[in-house]
Design a protein around this nucleic acid. Sequence first.
DNA 1: ATATATACCTTGCATTGCAATGTAGTGAGT
DNA 2: ACTCACTACATTGCAATGCAAGGTATATAT
Lengths: 110, 110
Amino acid sequence: MSSTQMLKGIIDGCVLAIIKNKEVYGYELAEKLEAYGFESFSEGTIYPMLMRMQREELVSATFKKSTAGPRRKYYSLTQKGEKELQHFITRWEQLQQSVNQVLQNGVNSS
Amino acid sequence: MSSTQMLKGIIDGCVLAIIKNKEVYGYELAEKLEAYGFESFSEGTIYPMLMRMQREELVSATFKKSTAGPRRKYYSLTQKGEKELQHFITRWEQLQQSVNQVLQNGVNSS
DNA sequence: ATATATACCTTGCATTGCAATGTAGTGAGT
DNA sequence: ACTCACTACATTGCAATGCAAGGTATATAT
């Protein structure tokens, strides 16, 4: 039971939420996620994920020049992405409720 | 982003918490998880998971006769399993905090 | 006998996080 | 010019695990 397994299907929603707030590029996203407390976020996770989301039309991308390195690929949310984010939030809240209930009943009452 | 992906690495902890409360057998576990709000829990998930946990010495198992069908395989927590449960709870709380922070900042402030 | 509920297990697949590796632009120091 | 560090995107192959589908077997009722 590694820590990374718990992230499956969850960072997707977090990424959508961050992109909704403001368009971001991949490298920036990695830094933001780390700032939020997700430790060690691999680029091997982020770039394939963003590309998958683009393929699924949850986000759209445009390249912009940078003065600090190569061009950046900025992502922003599509309407479909907004809907998906709302669905994620619903599922996340249900999951939280279920897990917390199990932990309370299961751990304390023995 | 399916609903099942979000469960990866998370039901493990929930199962440990349920077993800690009281020894259970697989079929019973499926029903309990459903009662807690985890919809549609496949036996193809539960039995391999329990066997994996036994292999990792997080749980121990004993067979007991049943009057309502074939013998039941009851699982109970080992010391190692208790430690693993504590680790899970820590990770879960961190995850909750991070995700909720992202959702608050990302969704509302745009 | 047949049906239903109980109870466990196995096989094969799909998804996805990640380490490792590659490529390339920009700027500072020497 | 050369090197180094930082920035930035991408690909490959692997590992973990949830699950549908299918199989086996026991107990009870009709």
